[in-house]
């Protein structure tokens, strides 16, 4: 049984702090306030499910809250969607994290922050304009015909048979030489 004074909650607090630091939450006072707020909430939830690890309890809460906010950043309605949340998170880091750190988790961010956010939805490529590339038949001339004829006639079986024949001829000649001339 883990209690709220358990060192495991220290670890959870530490992890929460890192999580917020990784999100570049500033100033520090706000970061600590958020961490403590979530920690208290997690402890309350933990009371109903004591088997749950404090880190899991605290960070699940934190990720759920942030994902919900990030989802809303890019779309006002609809359930929090992990992919939408990721897009929102990317935009947050591009537009808000440096210039408007105070906007983090703000349910109604300032209009300048929203304008910056809209311009920060980065593109990996411009609008597609498809072009089909058609491979043309190449005429390689007589060499191609010769090569095809050779490939059609070539077989390793023929090579092996010829090799075996010449080995046999060699040994026969050698045997004859040893018998009659040596």
């Amino acid at each position: 049984m883990i209690t709220s004074t358990d060192p495991a909650w220290d670890e959870a607090c530490e992890r929460l702090e890192k999580f917020l630091l990784a999100h570049r939450v500033a100033p520090r006072e706000r970061m600590l306030t958020l961490a403590l707020e979530w920690l208290r909430e997690a402890q309350t939830l933990h009371a109903t499910d004591p088997a749950r690890d404090p880190i899991t309890a605290a960070l699940s809460l934190a990720t759920a809250r942030t994902d919900e906010w990030f989802s809303r950043l890019v779309a006002d309605s609809g359930p929090a969607d992990p992919l939408r949340a990721a897009r929102g998170r990317a935009a947050y880091f591009s537009a808000l994290a440096g210039k408007f750190p105070i906007a983090f988790l703000d349910p109604s961010p300032p209009s300048e922050a929203l304008a910056a956010l809209r311009s920060a939805l980065f593109q990996a490529g411009p609008e597609l304009e498809f072009q089909s590339l058609v491979r043309k038949e190449m005429d390689y001339g007589a060499m191609e015909d010769i090569a095809h004829e050779t490939w059609e006639q070539f077989s390793w079986g023929h090579v092996l048979r010829a090799f075996a024949l010449w080995v046999a001829v060699f040994f026969a000649a050698w045997a004859a030489y040893l018998k009659f001339f040596a």
Partner: peptide, 16 residues
């Protein structure tokens, strides 16, 4: 896996 920014960028670049 750990940096929320890198993770978000990667996901945003992928097709669902």
């Amino acid at each position: 896996a750990t940096d929320p920014r890198t993770n978000a960028i990667h996901i945003a670049m992928l097709r669902r």
